[in-house]
């Protein structure tokens, strides 16, 4: 993916979440956004996802600007998959329907094909026998796998993960991170907001450190993690890796 964020600002009332954020990537398979809580990582991800509009600046994904009108934004969002921290599955539908319904209603796939595709995705994520269960009957890790399957179903150009393992215990986190790593290896472009530094270093090719509404440092993840330039990042990494 090619990504360009130019002097992005985003304000919520009086609160300035992003204060002129710049980030340019010529070609990246997987970008991780790291940084302290409240620094603007998730806001950046939501702007890339087209879920919110920037207050100023311009965002380009693969040389195309993220649209401004609601109608165009809706079309844009269809080309993207988003996975949230708390899964955000629909509690009144079973796992299969959670995956199949968007395919059928948003992407115009026939009912049978939607369900077939959903079923094969469930099998791919080792959930083949859980299709009829509702989210309340599944574990956190299983729910997150359903959510990942849902974000993949329409074969999006780009998948965005917003702290996909923050609500999971270490065992389940590891499972989910394995799934995400496989996706990256299979050639999916993705942007991940994460606190898992080990994962970020290993799985992503680029990383950006976002703090106080700005990109304080960015670069190839191996270099960034091994040899941080700004003292704030060095301190952040030290603290994150301490425990």
């Amino acid at each position: 993916m090619k990504l360009s964020l130019e002097s992005i600002t985003k304000t919520y009332g009086a609160h300035r979440a992003l204060k002129g954020l710049d980030l340019k990537l010529e070609s990246s398979r997987c970008l991780t956004l790291i940084g302290p809580s409240g620094g603007g990582k998730s806001t950046t991800l939501r702007l890339i996802a087209g879920l919110e509009k920037a207050s100023g600046g311009s965002i380009q994904v693969n040389n195309k600007p993220v649209p401004q009108t609601e109608e165009e934004l809706r079309r844009y969002r269809k080309s993207i998959g988003v996975v949230f921290q708390s899964y955000n599955l629909f509690p009144h539908f079973d796992a299969l329907t959670n995956i199949a319904l968007p395919l059928e209603k948003v992407h115009g796939v026939s009912r049978e094909e939607s369900r077939d595709r959903a079923q094969s995705l469930l099998s791919q994520f080792k959930l083949a026998t859980h299709g009829r269960k509702k989210p309340s009957e599944l574990s956190g890790g299983q729910n997150q796998r359903v959510a990942i399957a849902r974000s993949l179903a329409h074969n999006p150009d780009l998948i965005l993960f917003d702290e996909p393992t923050s609500a999971l215990d270490p065992e389940m986190s590891a499972q989910i991170l394995d799934v995400i790593e496989e996706l990256i290896q299979s050639g999916k472009d993705c942007v991940i907001v994460t606190h898992q530094m080990g994962f970020a270093k290993r799985a992503s090719d680029y990383a950006a450190f976002i703090s106080r509404g700005k990109v304080e440092e960015s670069g190839k993840s191996l270099e960034l993690f091994d040899n941080p330039q700004c003292p704030e990042l060095a301190q952040f990494l030290e603290r994150e890796l301490k425990y």
Partner: peptide
């Protein structure tokens, strides 16, 4: 609001969001 955000991310129109997500719940 997380349900609404999720529906938005999926690309549901406001009507579809109401029809399939908000109304049944």
């Amino acid at each position: 609001s997380s349900q609404l955000l999720s529906a938005k991310a999926i690309g549901f129109t406001p009507y579809q969001t109401f029809r399939y997500i908000v109304f049944p719940q």
